[in-house]
Write a protein that binds this DNA or RNA. Sequence first.
DNA 1: GCAAATTAATGATTTATTCAAG
DNA 2: CTTGAATAAATCATTAATTTGC
Lengths: 226, 226
Amino acid sequence: MEDNQGQDHHSPSNHGTERSEPVRSRWTPKPEQILILESIFNSGMVNPPKNETVRIRKLLEKFGSVGDANVFYWFQNRRSRSRRRQRQMQASGGTSNGFANSPSSYLVGSSSSSGVVGEDHGVESLFSFSNQMGFQESEQTSGVTSILCPSETSSLHYQTAGFITIFINGVPTEVPRTPLDVKAMFGQDVMLVHSSGVPVPTNEYGFLVQILHHGESYFLVNISAV
Amino acid sequence: MEDNQGQDHHSPSNHGTERSEPVRSRWTPKPEQILILESIFNSGMVNPPKNETVRIRKLLEKFGSVGDANVFYWFQNRRSRSRRRQRQMQASGGTSNGFANSPSSYLVGSSSSSGVVGEDHGVESLFSFSNQMGFQESEQTSGVTSILCPSETSSLHYQTAGFITIFINGVPTEVPRTPLDVKAMFGQDVMLVHSSGVPVPTNEYGFLVQILHHGESYFLVNISAV
DNA sequence: GCAAATTAATGATTTATTCAAG
DNA sequence: CTTGAATAAATCATTAATTTGC
C-alpha cells in the first residue's frame, strides 16, 4: 500500500475536456500521444526516470491534458504487457512477426558486461539502477539520451506561438506554422509526404503550398525514390 | 443482412493464431492488417467494391486469417464512425487535431491516419453507391485505383517463398528477403529508417546489413535531410 | 446505416517481490 | 531483521472495437 511509486502519482490528471464532466475515470491518450510514447519506448527508453517522465508529460500536453502519473502508468503497463506477450510467443512458436515490441537499440553506453540485449529482462536490468534515483536534476542518468527534440529541454511548454509539433519520420519536431521552405530545411531532392500517402504540394520554389497540421505525421522521402 | 453483403463470408475466419483454436467467434485484426486497411481507407478507397475487397483480404491473409466479410464490415464501420466523429468535432469546435482512429496496438507508432486529407464525408459520397457490393464483380466502380502493389494483382497469396511484405512510406510493398541493395532499388542518397526511428544499417556499398522484417513499417529518407 | 450487445484493449490499482540501507 | 523504494505481476474497471439485429 505504498502511496506512490516515487512518481508524483495522484494528480488524477483532470484531463477533463474543460467541461463539466461528472467523472471521467480514465485518461484516453490521443493518437499523437501514443505515437510519442511508442516512439520513446521503441527507442529504448522503456523505463524513463522521473525527470524524463516530466519532460515527456510536457510534450504530451501539447495534444491533450495528461499527468505525470499517466505517463508513468503507461510505461509500466507497456513494459509489463510487452514482456508477457514475449513470453506467450515463445511458449507457442510464434513465427508471427511481432511489431508490438522491439526496444532493440539502446543508446545506453555505460553498463556493459552482459552480452545479448535480447529481450526485456536484459533491458530491465540495464535500466534498473537508473530508476530509484529521486534526484539527478539536470543530469542524464547514465548514457540515456532523450529523443525529445531540443526545444523541449528548455522551459515553456504549451503550444508556442507560431510553432506546431508534427512528426517527421516518427520524430516529434517543432516547425514554424509559416510557409516552410522544404528544400532549404531538409535538402534538395526531398519532399514531404503525409502519413496517409498523400504528398504535401509545394510550388516551383520548393515552398509548401499547404500548411502542415499540428500533430500529423509526415515523412521525408527522396523524390527519385518515389 | 448477414448473409448477403455479397461477401462469401462465413469463412468464419477462424483467425486462430495458426493454432488449433477450438472456436473463436470474432476476428481480431493484426496490427499489420490495420495498417493496410487504414492505408487503403486513407488513400480514398473508403468503400471498396467486392473485387477489391477480395484482393484486400488476400493481402491481409499474409498476416493472419481473415474473411472477405471481415474486410467489408471493417470498411462499413470505419466509414460510419468516421462520419460520426466528423459531426461531433464540428459540434464542439474541435481544435484538437483529429487523428482518426487509434489502432488497438500501438505499433501504429508509424502510420497513423488521416485528419488532414479531407476526412470522410466528402470522399464517402463519391463511393456511397458502390457499397452494397452484391455484384459489380470485376469492374472498378469509378476512377478507383488500387493502391496495392502490383504483385497483388496476380494470384498466389500466402507468404511467397522469398518475399516479405513491409510498409514503405505507408505503402504495402513486397521485397525479397535477400540482402537488399538500397541504392540500386531506391536511389543514391536515401536510407531506410524503421518506424521506431532507428535507421536500418547498410554497409559501404549500400546493402542492408540487417534484414527487414515482415510487416514492419519503414520510411525512405534523404540522407542529407537527416 | 444505425445502435444495442459483445468482446477486446488498456488505463489504473493492488499485491508481492526484490534489493539496499540501517 | 525491518523498513522503504521501486517495479513486475495480477487484477479491476472503463473505454474502444467489433458483431449482431433491425
